[in-house]
Design a binder for these strands. Structure first.
Lengths: 355, 355
DNA sequence: CGGCGTCATGGTAACGCAAACAATACCCCG
DNA sequence: CGGGGTATTGTTTGCGTTACCATGACGCCG
């Protein structure tokens, strides 16, 4: 069998495809098996043989074919990262951490594009997800997915879910939304604020709902009445618009808890438009601790969310599942901490000047 | 040949591995080839047979094994995305666009983690990049890579470079740094500013150097003297520190052109600390048009960089290379446009008040 | 000096799939 | 009724790799 020189059209020209292990074997005068051993760094090869093989590898530019290797091993050494929206700070940072952590374990990270959450359904005969060349999947759900129960039945791959509601029968890693939101609201309460408005992310987002819920319960625990939650879409623009409306409708609150930093910036913008000052007239707390939080004017008090740790945890859990650990369906909550900067201050003693 | 039931340990239990095409064939009473035809949607199968096969596929939960398919076809239907740093706005947005564009073409995107640029060297015997299960590579270089010439020799995969110097013998896609920087500086000149300072990204960055260079040449073209460039590291913190030093050393300029929006925010912060106003005392222009630029206070005048288009262009160029198009080593420059907001204004007529 | 263990290397097979080719059944038309 | 298609299905083969087993060479010990 001479798999080399499969296209002897032009003598002297190198074969079209990349060199295979047999080409190297022939060039070095050894068996393919020995080349394989050298390529994989096994020790039971005589040094002189090894050198000869390495030379041939160099000469032919041989690279192991990962498809063949994957086929043989049944593994891909790759983690699938599924999200519906890479554009948010959290998803992007989580991906970053996942990519880094999986690299350390010798895995690559494959972005599995799912533009439409409903496509997680069994599409036709197959679930497309399972056809992908990955050993396991990290599913970052910032929004509700209708058919996740079906997914459970169908998916024959290890799965870890990030940023989701707690109710699903999977291993879950998430920021502790409750703990973080409690931190934010209690910080405002401690500063003496009693009239606090929450501007939240969209209804569809689990974390947005969780933060809004915690806002209400924390207010209730303090014996205070919560204002209606202003529902935005995470964007600064939406918060800007909502806060303008709020000011148009009645007296401003003394403090705002924004669902994320972007929205906090929008809120601050609207407050300033109104001729009010932050934090003297209105205090603002954000959520995320994005990079711009530290340099906005004033620097933003916010809840630091440890996306890196979320990503690292999700990755290591998934890798252990891939290695055959039983799926204990644990729920791992990553704690946050409050970063107090300049956008919050004690409540004014006098009444807020009407605009 | 009966590849099924490889582990008959527990009768009644399904085999350990996933069902193969042979298992389905046996279950449906047809040949593996027919299953393959059904799975790939070929038309030359009798409807009754097709239905029977589909039922068996369902029953066994069969999913095509992509490793075997890749091995057979020699393709992976995946694009490798290489960067040294996912955390920057531009890289992240570019990745997002690449992922979207490659999805549309039926490709996945694989993150090829390269923590250390020098690792692009031939490491040991192989270039690890070529071992990856990808059909081509998009290399996002925000910093200089020493051994790229070697890479050229070694890499046997289609390659498109993003965000790089123009000198390399590859197909290159980049934001038109010169055009964008010219826009920013001339905008300030048009407003009457004569004393303009540039706060740049790090020396190692091609785009930072290009922007600084354009700052100097544009000033020279206007017959003005450029101030020494303040070299930061893209972070708001670095710009904050540099601007503080600048103010400590002498009279402030009437305008600052910042290398990116983050740094512009840092500059504005420092200006305010000094008791000066933006834009009345000092105008500030950024670069990138990040989301927060629109809602910072004041809203930031900046150069909009179309990362989406960069990513889309890079992807379609790479896909055509993968499809066998000759590498014409074109250089594609994506134009920017200036977004004028509230951080720039006409130069003050009187002298700047000394602090 | 013979037997046995160890080391180095080679041969064979199989991973799962699909292209190429082969075979069969059926139909139409002369 | 037979030749030559067309439609459907089956068989063989090989993609590149590595696990497994076989083989041969060598050295050591009794």
């Amino acid at each position: 069998m001479t798999p080399a020189s499969n296209t002897p059209s032009e003598p002297g020209s190198q074969p079209k495809g990349r060199a295979s292990i047999y080409d190297v074997a022939a060039h070095a005068g050894v068996s393919a098996q020995t080349v394989s051993r050298v390529a994989n760094g096994q020790t039971n090869v005589r040094p002189t043989t090894r050198d000869r093989v390495l030379e041939s590898i160099q000469a032919l530019g041989y690279r192991p074919n990962s498809a063949a290797r994957n086929l043989k091993s049944g593994k891909f050494r790759s983690i699938g990262f599924v999200t519906f929206n890479l554009a948010t700070l959290g998803n992007e940072q989580t991906l970053n951490a996942v990519a880094e952590a999986s690299e350390k374990a010798g895995y690559t990270t494959t972005l599995l594009p799912v533009t439409d959450p409903t496509k997680l359904d069994v599409a036709g005969a197959f679930s497309r997800l399972e056809e992908q060349a990955v050993d396991g999947i990290i599913l970052v759900m910032s929004a509700e997915v209708g058919s996740l129960d079906e997914l459970k039945v169908t998916l024959g791959l290890p799965l870890v879910i990030v940023d989701s509601d707690a109710m699903l029968p999977y291993t879950i890693v998430d920021t502790d939304q409750e703990q973080g939101s409690g931190l934010a609201v209690r910080h405002l309460l401690d500063l003496g604020h009693r009239d606090i408005v929450h501007v939240s992310g969209p209804e569809i987002s689990f974390s947005a709902r969780r933060r809004a819920e915690t806002y209400r319960t924390t207010m209730a625990e303090a014996g205070l009445e919560a204002r209606p939650v202003l529902v935005g879409d995470w964007s600064a623009q939406s918060a800007l618009a909502l806060t303008r409306e709020l000011f148009a409708d009645g007296p401003p609150p003394t403090a705002v808890f924004a669902g994320n930093d972007q929205m906090a910036l929008g809120v601050i913008h609207a407050i300033r438009e109104r001729g009010l000052r932050v934090p003297e007239d209105v205090s603002v707390v954000g959520f995320d601790d994005a990079e711009e939080a530290a340099v906005s004017w004033p620097a933003l008090t916010t809840v630091h969310q440890n996306f890196d740790q979320v990503g690292r945890n999700a990755t290591s859990l998934l890798l252990s599942l891939i290695d055959g650990a039983p799926d204990t369906r644990r729920k791992v909550l990553i704690p946050t901490h409050l970063v107090v900067r300049d956008s919050t201050g004690p409540v004014r003693s006098g009444p807020v000047p009407s605009a």
